[in-house]
Design a protein around this nucleic acid. Structure first.
Length: 433
DNA sequence: TCTGGGGTCCTAGGACCC
DNA sequence: TCTGGGGTCCTAGGACCC
């Protein structure tokens, strides 16, 4: 049996753990730039606040209804997520961390009592150790576990846990679920299936296999088998290294000049390099993109440029250099830029990268010393160690740093909670920087 | 008139997830 | 005035190989 453990209203719950005064209040958490609502307490949902609604549309309501509003605090949520996973693993070792607030649990290899009892123990311990409430669905496949989890959360009578196993029980539950609510059915497929009068999960369950394959390819076929209790999606305990890494942000205010864009791109390129080093990868391609605000009626512009690096790299200095050259190629004066970003791709293991024939030091000069690439890697390791200990970007490159004139691109976070679990990193080490 | 039979790699576009 | 930021997989078609 497979379990899906899902943290209830995760970001809201994290904020509540450290501020009990909002335990009973309506709470919302906003996306970056305080743009959209991305998490809501049950009370906020009851007020009709939808997922993804722009904040400005509900700002008045938050005043009237005395709703607590938070900017997203990913340092806090990431840390709390790790604590939840740690607690779960102590009871059920075979775990797939699916997202920041969801894990799949393999109850079969846990060699425990029945899944429901073990699951209840997991929920209790997570609550005790972290203060985060959870819902748990248990079934024979991941897709059915997702459904069971929905039932566990929606229905108060099941106390946050639900086991979905008997065929008749599965069919009667599938009849109550819209096909669009299935894991793997998005807007497009829901619309397409609707044309064939396939509206509930049970309708899809009863479709012929050939129809599903024809209309939804092999992805849909897997979903269909999973609904019938035949696992097609294995538990993936070891997270695979990412194949692309992207860092992008909207600006606090639209930007028209090159200098603040250079600063933003340098900052994003550095973050990409950090993420690469964290997973032990190096990139072969660096892509930079810029875009204007598509919600505005004014003249639009969006463009990107991709460099192929001479050697694969995760050196912040090299990635910044290429990223800035890419920016120079696509920057056009006269536009109101709203967003920019850096994508690195063609990722390879950092220790297996292909040396360039022309890279200095790679031919005939390596006997006694290190190549520049090796030296660079060491330097980056030192920087990472310092920043890990003293806080993000305590040591940084000049290209990332702002002057008074260029700082207006940086993020808006008007409702940020304290770094409750990582606060010591805020202690400045100014003289070291 | 007829015009083989395999492959690989890359990219763009479409679909989905949180 | 104000509208997030990441990712994955699959398929079709084109270029190219022997």
């Amino acid at each position: 049996m497979i379990g899906l453990l899902d943290c209830n209203n995760f970001y809201v719950s994290c904020e509540r753990v450290f501020d009990p005064t909002i335990a009973k209040k309506s709470v919302v958490v906003l996306s970056n730039q305080d743009g959209c609502v991305i998490a809501r307490s049950n009370e906020a949902k009851a007020l009709g606040i939808e997922m993804g609604v722009p904040f400005f549309q509900i700002r008045a309501l938050t005043k009237v209804e005395d709703i607590a509003v938070y900017s997203s605090n990913y340092a806090l949520y990431g840390d709390m997520s790790s604590r939840v996973v740690e607690t779960v693993r102590a009871i059920v070792p075979e775990v797939e961390v699916y997202s920041i607030d969801e894990q799949f649990l393999d109850f079969d290899t846990a060699h425990r009592r029945n899944a429901a009892d073990t699951g209840q123990e997991v929920r209790t311990k997570v609550g005790q150790h972290t203060g985060i409430p959870t819902g748990l669905g248990i079934a024979r496949t991941k897709t059915l576990a997702k459904i069971a989890n929905r039932i566990a959360k929606k229905s108060l009578t099941h106390g946050g846990i639900y086991v979905l196993d008997h065929p008749q029980q599965i069919e009667s539950m599938l009849a109550l679920i819209a096909v669009s609510d299935l894991w793997g059915i998005g807007r497009r497929y829901a619309k397409k299936l609707g044309k064939y009068n396939v509206n509930t999960a049970l309708d899809l369950y009863r479709c012929p296999e050939s129809f599903v394959q024809q209309q939804m390819t092999v992805v849909g076929l897997r979903l269909w088998h999973e609904l019938h209790g035949r696992p097609c999606l294995p538990l993936e305990q070891i997270s695979k290294p990412k194949k692309n890494i992207c860092t992008s942000r909207s600006f606090q205010q639209v930007q028209t000049d090159l200098p603040p864009l250079r600063e933003a791109i340098a900052t994003h390129a550095n973050r990409c390099a950090q993420k690469l080093r964290a997973q032990g990868s190096a990139a072969n391609y660096v892509q930079v993109f810029v875009q204007t605000n598509k919600h505005c009626p004014e003249q639009q512009y969006a463009n990107s440029f991709t460099w192929t690096l001479p050697v694969s790299s995760n050196d912040s200095r090299l990635l910044i250099r290429y990223a800035l050259q890419a920016l120079e190629r696509i920057f056009q004066p006269g536009y109101h830029y709203q967003k920019c970003g850096v994508i690195v791709s063609g990722l390879v293991p950092e220790n297996a990268h292909q040396l360039s024939l022309f890279e200095p030091g790679t031919l005939g000069h390596t006997s006694g010393g290190q190549t520049p690439a090796e030296k660079g890697l060491q330097l980056m390791q030192v920087v990472d160690t310092l920043n890990d200990r003293y806080g993000r970007d305590k040591v940084q490159l000049g290209a990332m740093m702002s002057t008074k004139e260029t700082a207006s691109w940086r993020m808006q976070q008007n409702f940020l909670s304290p770094q409750y679990t990582t606060r010591f990193k805020d202690i400045p080490i100014a003289w070291c920087v």
